[in-house]
Design a protein around this nucleic acid. Structure first.
Length: 157
DNA sequence: TAGGCCATCTGGTCCT
DNA sequence: AGGACCAGATGGCCTA
């Protein structure tokens, strides 16, 4: 889809990610193809902030607020509570435990690499401190929703 | 100093 | 059987 490509390709994503979209007015080819009068007056940045605000990510000054991300009301998702299976004992040697620790470290390392990749793709301010993992996930959800909504609006016009 | 975040270890469970 | 995945516990580091 052409419009999707215009909004979601790496150039656009980098444009958001490095903060340069803060400095420039919205001026995309998609914009010029649609109703100019309606879109020119709308700052894409403000729209994202509005969107983020709706989803609890922005404060009154329309800056992304990331410090108030709670973890309340999480359900009990433990394996045993989900499966209800009887426990079986598994005996492992110290060597096996050591190997398992190394594998777990590797696994967490690759997980963190994936988080770093995701951090590069979500829009943040240059002066803002590094996003935590939970902040990265939640901001990515908001960002994807925002872009989807933007895409739908452009398709309708 | 308290709270948030993260790395690491560990044991339970799932999956091949 | 053993690797992958997951969540709890713990301790260190950093910041307000």
């Amino acid at each position: 889809m052409e419009i999707q490509g215009q909004f979601l390709d790496s150039t656009v994503v980098d444009f958001f990610t490095d903060g340069s979209f803060l400095e420039l007015p919205l001026k995309s080819s998609a914009e010029s193809n649609t109703s100019e009068a309606s879109l020119h007056s709308i700052d894409i940045r403000e729209r994202f902030y509005d969107f983020a605000s709706i989803h609890g990510f922005a404060d009154a000054e329309s800056k992304v607020s990331l410090g108030s991300l709670g973890m309340e009301n999480l359900p009990d998702c433990s394996m045993s509570s989900l499966t209800g299976r009887s426990k079986r004992k598994r005996v492992i040697t110290s060597n096996q435990r050591h190997a398992a620790n190394i594998r777990e470290r590797k696994r967490m390392f690759s997980l963190n690499e994936a988080f770093d990749d995701l951090r590069k793709k979500v829009p943040t301010f240059a002066y803002e401190k590094r996003l935590s993992r939970i902040e990265t996930l939640r901001l990515a959800v908001v960002y994807i929703s925002f872009m989807s909504e933007l895409l739908n609006k452009n398709e309708k016009q």
